[in-house]
Amino acid sequence: MFRLDGKTALVTGASGGIGRAIAAALHAQGATVVLSGTREAVLQEQVAELGGERAFYVTANLSDAAEADALVGKAEEAAGAPLDILINNAGLTRDTLALRMKDQDWDQVLNVDLSSPFRLCRAALKGMLRRRAGRIVNIASVVGTTGNAGQANYAAAKAGMVGMSKSLAQEAGSRGVTVNVVAPGFIVTPMTDVLPDAQKEKLTSAIPLGRLGKPEDVASAVLYLCSEEAGWVTGSTLHVNGGMAMV
């Protein structure tokens, strides 16, 4: 089950902890993967880690609209095949309480975390609709549903992503293209690894499954939604949060 042989996937934010795990999971199931990110050296390393076969990378700065618009085409060029799967995983945070949040903090997060995924969806859908097949999985966050003090911008972008995905799912459904969301909870990545142990313990105590998430937990959910087996699932949000928020 869940084989992706012959499929081509683009994973944005692939140099981060979760993106890396997603790319590895899709690749392990037979997909050709194109990794995109800003750090070329890291991407090169990952392609090598995947054995160099069926793996490519394209650098892109998704805060630039033109680069976001062009990325799907570049990925298809790199892989030498049309895109079957798009994973919008890239994102950034600019956390601060609203009173201290600058317009720039707001705009940058909305641009990279919401507008650029839309641009990528738009570009990818064009071919997917024509080919009558395709999978889009947008990586949101539990805070898009629950909110989080200090993350008004990020939570708004991630909630927006859910509404966007549901709309696209309705537009693309008649062509067999599915659009879904995976909303991770607290995942251990290099970014969160630096938190003090006391804080991690506190976080863990709020999780019924008794541990923080691993990038692989998210990757498995993404893999499912990319598979043929998930062919009747669209517009849904799969929460992967250890039970921290049961929504």
Partner: peptide, 11 residues
């Protein structure tokens, strides 16, 4: 054609 087809045609 459906509505999506007409959009695709225009494009």
């Amino acid at each position: 054609a459906d509505s999506l087809d007409t959009v695709e045609l225009v494009m």
